[in-house]
Simulated scan of single mutants.
Amino acid sequence: MGSITETRQFDIPKLCKAGVVVNEGPDFQVEVQMVPVPEPGPDDILVRLKFTGLCSSDIHLMQGDLGMPPMSTFGVRSPGHEGAGIVVKVGANVKNFKLGDRAGVKPIVDTCGTCSLCLVDKETYCKAAIHSGLMTAGTYQQYLVSPARYASPIPDGIPDEVAAPIMCSASTIYRSLVESNLRAGSWVVFPGGGGGVGIQGVQLAKAMGMRPIVVDTGASKRELSLKMGAEAFVDFVETDDSAKAVIEIADGVGAHGVFVTAPAAYKTAVSFIGNRVGSMIMCIGLPPAGTMILGTDPCEFIFKNLTIKGTLVGSRSDTAAALDYAKRGMLHQICEVYPINRLPEGVEKLRKGQVAGRIVVNFDWEE
């Protein structure tokens, strides 16, 4: 018997569709090309993705502006880290997945599993972590290999177009909400909250009993934010003083928590707390390296008991928790679905900041 268990149930091609980066760097472009289907090892699964989400972090990796080695250093041409699909091949040692199971691929594909960070639920900070779409082929590629131990099982009842963004945006903001230690009833502000991570945060905050306020601009983001549970939407273009408007909504005192998912919002994040004592500023969105400084007069920290804290992507347990919210009907579709041939168009729209919620790409649909 070989190292791979196969079945005739799945006809696995030699080549598959993928969004491939051309001219990596500030002037990058994405093309849909045919690339080889990878072969899983004995501890791996091969996943045929049905959907991939498009995340702003993908733009950073294609531009190479996060201060990390570029994708090409690792021989990677396809970014992406929000994939949902089915297992079509399993390695001989795999016990936790079988053929036909649903599986998700996340921003981190694997970790060492044994370091002090992995052992205390800080696995996403593991120095040996392998990052999807940077160090290994990402979810813009239809067929992907993933270590079986780190892939996320997707429960029945959650559509793939909902599950794909949960792999990053929902699990990432879930982690931040949990680490904020805010209680039910707290006013929480999402500047840039009409985007993919923020709008998932609105839903989860609402489910946790918090009171979300979105600061963003545009009719589509207003409509989506209010539909997904925001108690108020402040349009920073139409409003003379967004901070004042937020403070008035938040009992005239200010926000208990500010969750910064849009890097441009770091400049004004502290202003939303008003006179609230004990507020949390949670840093989530990644700006280009060296372009943004967040802080204020130390007296503000002292007299207002202010905390500024950062969180990275969600762990496996965070993803499982976010999927459970979706299974219970508390996370809804926040995406616009594009066919695979329009993936480059979706990337350009995302690069220009024109996306309300998420764009997800359907590998099985072509116009």
Rank of each mutant, 00 (worst) to 15 (best):
L204E: 09
A264K: 08
I308S: 02
L204H: 07
D240P: 04
G257S: 05
A322P: 08
Q200D: 05
E248N: 11
D240V: 11
P298E: 12
V197E: 03
P298I: 12
A243F: 10
V313D: 01
I281T: 01
L226P: 08
G290I: 07
C299T: 09
T261I: 04
G201T: 13
G209Q: 02
P263C: 12
D318V: 14
V197N: 03
V277G: 01
P287A: 13
F272W: 12
V270N: 07
T217W: 00
I293K: 06
S271C: 03
R276H: 14
Q200R: 04
D235N: 12
F233Q: 05
A243N: 06
K304V: 00
K221P: 00
K309W: 07
G252E: 07
S242T: 08
A207L: 05
M280N: 12
D235R: 08
P212G: 14
A255H: 08
V246Q: 08
D240M: 07
Q200T: 08
M280P: 00
G252F: 04
I213V: 15
F236Q: 02
D297P: 01
I308T: 04
K267H: 12
A289G: 09
D235S: 11
G209Y: 03
S220F: 00
D251V: 10
L312E: 03
S271D: 15
A243D: 10
G229D: 13
L306M: 10
K206I: 00
C299E: 10
A264R: 07
A264W: 00
M208Q: 06
I308R: 07
A322K: 08
I199H: 02
G195L: 13
K267I: 05
G229N: 13
D235M: 12
F303W: 06
V253L: 11
A289L: 15
S225W: 13
G295Y: 15
P263A: 12
L306E: 08
F272H: 12
C299A: 10
F301A: 05
A219P: 03
P287G: 12
K244E: 13
G314V: 09
V270A: 15
R211F: 02
G196L: 14
L204P: 06
P298N: 09
V313K: 03
L312C: 06
A230W: 02
V260N: 13
F236N: 07
I249P: 01
L312T: 14
D240F: 02
D297I: 08
L224M: 14
I273D: 03
H256T: 06
G310C: 14
A255Y: 09
A262I: 02
P298A: 11
L226R: 01
